[in-house]
């Protein structure tokens, strides 16, 4: 390293390096932008496919925002159709009452409002406790836990501790409440969407 580097030289070399970096990043950005969007779409599409009844349309293309009564934010509803008739929908719902923040879950419903499936999209719940919700509420061996096939309008979708019909996750009642809270919100949005479609 030479002594007495001039200010000009310092500014130029830092500037040149930053420009090269920016150019490189812009190039990488341009080639990865599409795959990133694709990956996000695929994740969403997979979740929709996993939770809804069999469909032959493109639910993502028909995405609709529904504002359930008394809610602060709209929910995204992805309608599933067969031969043009509505057979159910996937609803992306959330609850901000999780143990350590917001949870977001994709719920599926058939045309009668029965739960057909769910897929947890995002959460920050405690690993090993709260994150058991991925599987807990679709355990086909336990009717007390399972929400699949049940109609939230007829079943009391609350944890048994609160006098409801569903057994919450052991040692993770707050997460279970948040999960069922999100389910209730999704169900309301779906019923509202279905009824507005019928009219």
């Amino acid at each position: 390293m030479k002594k007495g580097d001039s200010l000009l030289k310092m500014v130029i070399s830092l500037g040149v390096i930053t420009c090269i970096s920016a150019a490189l990043l812009a190039w990488v950005y341009s080639i990865t932008a599409d795959p990133i969007k694709q990956a996000e779409r695929e994740k969403q599409a997979e979740a929709i496919k996993a939770v809804t009844p069999v469909y032959d349309n493109d639910p993502i293309a028909e995405e609709d925002d529904v504002m359930p009564v008394g809610e602060p934010a709209p929910l995204a509803v992805f309608p599933a159709r067969r031969n043009g008739n509505l057979v159910g929908a996937a609803v992306e719902s959330y609850s901000s009452d999780g143990f350590s923040g917001e949870i977001s879950v994709m719920y599926g419903f058939d045309i009668n409002g029965n739960v057909t499936g769910y897929e947890v999209l995002n959460h920050t719940e405690t690993p090993g406790l709260g994150d058991k919700m991925d599987e807990w509420f679709r355990d086909s061996l336990s009717t007390q836990r399972n929400i699949i096939g049940k109609d939230p309008a007829k079943t009391d979708m609350k944890v048994s501790k609160d006098g409801g019909d569903i057994d919450g996750i052991t040692a993770a009642t707050i997460t279970s409440r948040a999960f069922l809270d999100a389910l209730r919100r999704a169900h309301n949005a779906f019923i509202q969407y279905r009824d507005s479609e019928k009219r």
Binding site: L25, V28, P35
Partner: peptide, 18 residues
């Protein structure tokens, strides 16, 4: 720092995509 940040961002974008 600029060099390191550049490579980190490149990695970040590739990971996000693939």
């Amino acid at each position: 720092i600029v060099v390191i940040a550049t490579f980190v961002t490149v990695l970040q974008m590739f990971m996000q995509a693939y």
